[in-house]
């Protein structure tokens, strides 16, 4: 493998090396891989499927819902306070369902926000690494409990033992309070882990700056970290709201079936999702008004959560941009 000659031709004689081509040869060919083009198209189709699902959701809800609104006016639907679709003098005011949903959501958020944020501040600002590594999986465990089991728990333990026996409240086995409170605990991991992410993303320089001014840990957490992570924390809360609005099994099992304008959390009440789940149990014929009613409520639920989600996505994006 001597290299006595430095011309291209001379070196080309060395075994294993590519010969220098004759002048004017075009070595580089064009790429032509039809199989890969097909695969790329398939991958793209898979990605577009998500859009198709969204369109499918809107269309499948919209069709029957439009049939519904051809018989019942939108104003009556949105402002009526009597929901009696199965009665002879049927009335389609959705407000009783909406108030029940609003109450359960409110109670769930009242539970999940303080305890979720408290957990998040502890995990992000106080807990040593080792403790955090144990606590976080346990929180994930709580998030992994199926909602039917939470429903069973609310009905068979929380209502009789905590609400009736410990707190001596005047509640029946079914109540907005019982469903909402257990749902709140279910949402704690959502709020905690998302807001912990937001707080952990706050640069350490801010904490050190605050400590250098003589602030203690509590002051740093509340006056520096919390405001800096605010939009992320709000996003966590908003996602929690969206989960509470859409949650079905807990409220269906523990919230009661009675459709009424809810004025106290001690009452029972059917939420929008309770109504949908119950209506699905009955065998309503496709195309009947009863069937269409289901989709009208579903469409309302979809839009409510959609608005909430869009707000959350915007907030998350903003907090990601901050650092």
């Amino acid at each position: 493998m001597s290299s006595t000659s430095t011309t291209a031709a001379g070196r080309a004689a060395v075994p294993g090396r590519l010969a220098a081509p004759a002048p004017g040869t075009r070595i580089l060919r064009s790429g032509n891989r039809p199989g890969e083009a097909v695969v790329r198209v398939l991958l793209r189709l898979a990605a577009f499927l998500s859009v198709a699902i969204t369109v499918g959701i809107v269309l499948s809800l919209l069709g029957p819902a439009l049939d519904f609104f051809s018989e019942v006016s939108v104003v009556e639907f949105l402002t009526g306070t009597r929901w009696t679709p199965r009665f002879a003098d049927a009335s389609y005011g959705v407000l009783p369902l909406v108030t029940a949903t609003a109450w359960t959501t409110l109670i769930a958020i009242a539970v999940a926000v303080p305890f979720g944020l408290g957990s998040a501040i502890y995990l992000s600002e106080y807990a040593p690494d080792r403790v955090r590594r144990i606590l976080k999986p346990v929180l994930e465990l709580l998030a992994g409990v199926p909602t039917v089991v939470f429903g069973y728990f609310a009905l068979t333990w929380f209502a009789p033992t905590v609400l009736q026996r410990f707190l001596s409240l005047e509640v029946g086995p079914f109540s907005i309070l019982s469903a909402g409170a257990v749902m709140g605990v279910m949402i704690i991991p959502t709020v905690a882990s998302l807001s912990e992410d937001a707080m952990s993303a706050v640069p350490n320089a801010l904490r050190q700056g605050s400590a250098a001014l003589g602030a203690n840990r509590m002051q740093t957490s509340l006056r520096v970290v919390f405001p800096a992570a605010f939009s992320g924390i709000v996003a966590a809360i908003v996602l929690g709201i969206s989960r509470a609005v859409g949650e079905t099994m807990i409220v269906t099992i523990a919230g009661g079936q009675l459709v009424q304008m809810v004025s106290s959390p001690l009452q029972q009440g059917a939420t929008m999702t309770t109504f949908i789940a119950n209506a699905a149990l009955g065998d309503s014929r496709v195309g009947s008004l009863e069937y269409n009613t289901l989709f009208a409520v579903g469409l309302l639920l979809f839009f409510l959560t959609l608005i909430v989600n869009l707000v959350a996505i915007q907030l998350v994006r903003r907090f990601r941009q901050e650092y």
């Binding site: 998500s50 949908i276 789940a277």
Partner: peptide
């Protein structure tokens, strides 16, 4: 989509 309620 990831936040659309399951029942939907």
């Amino acid at each position: 989509l990831s936040a659309v309620p399951a029942i939907i």
